[in-house]
């Protein structure tokens, strides 16, 4: 049986059938949790951000026109929520938040003892990236979005997004190699 499209469901939510939002939650909650977790490295915070995202979808449901893909609209809101979160922390910026994320990684590594060393290294390297580059890599590699969709979310062109992703990968590789060298010392 063909499942109902995200847009059809969201339009029902928009028209007042709020309980239908449960279907979209079931479809996307893990993916969104992954998106936030890969950026914040904090499980509890990521769960809160997922909750905030659905509250915001509920609040701004009247703004959904159903013209583009629901997931594109959703990730645009997800990025705004992240930006708001980093503003609210009243820190100097993303990089300082990342310092905390490092600590959290170290804490959580106790919980996930079996995690391989290179994954830890890669996590650290990812957290050294600028916020936008990290978001680009996560959206393209983990969230399965097409470059065209990412361009729409980030209000840019498809070509520019490709260039940025390539640069982000290169930066990630450099951070990774640096960390690998420093840990080997």
């Amino acid at each position: 049986m063909e499942s109902i499209s995200d847009n059809t469901i969201m339009l029902k939510v928009k028209s007042g059938d709020l309980n239908k939002l449960g279907i979209l939650f079931e479809r996307y909650n893990r993916m969104l949790f992954g998106f936030f977790y890969r950026i914040t490295s904090n499980r509890e915070l990521s769960e809160d951000l997922v909750q905030n995202l659905f509250i915001r979808i509920m609040k701004y449901r009247k703004n959904f026109r159903g013209e583009g893909k629901f997931s594109t609209w959703m990730y645009t809101i997800a990025r705004n929520i992240l930006a708001d979160h980093f503003k609210q922390t009243k820190r100097k910026g993303f990089n300082i938040e990342i310092t905390d994320a490092h600590e959290l990684i170290n804490d959580e590594s106790i919980e996930f003892e079996l995690e391989e060393e290179k994954h830890q290294l890669l996590k650290k390297a990812m957290n050294c990236l600028e916020k936008e580059k990290l978001e680009l890599l996560i959206l393209s590699r983990y969230q399965g979005l097409k470059y065209r969709e990412i361009a729409e979310i980030m209000n840019s062109s498809e070509g520019a997004i490709r260039v940025k992703i390539f640069r982000a990968l290169n930066d990630l590789r450099e951070h990774y190699l640096k960390l690998e060298k420093s840990e080997a010392l």
Binding site: Y37, V50, Q51, M58, H119
Partner: peptide, 18 residues
């Protein structure tokens, strides 16, 4: 790269909000 599963609390909080 592995990623942990969200806790059940996330689902509970969502349905309570709904």
């Amino acid at each position: 790269m592995p990623i942990p599963e969200p806790s059940e609390q996330m689902s509970k909080s969502f349905y309570a909000m709904l």
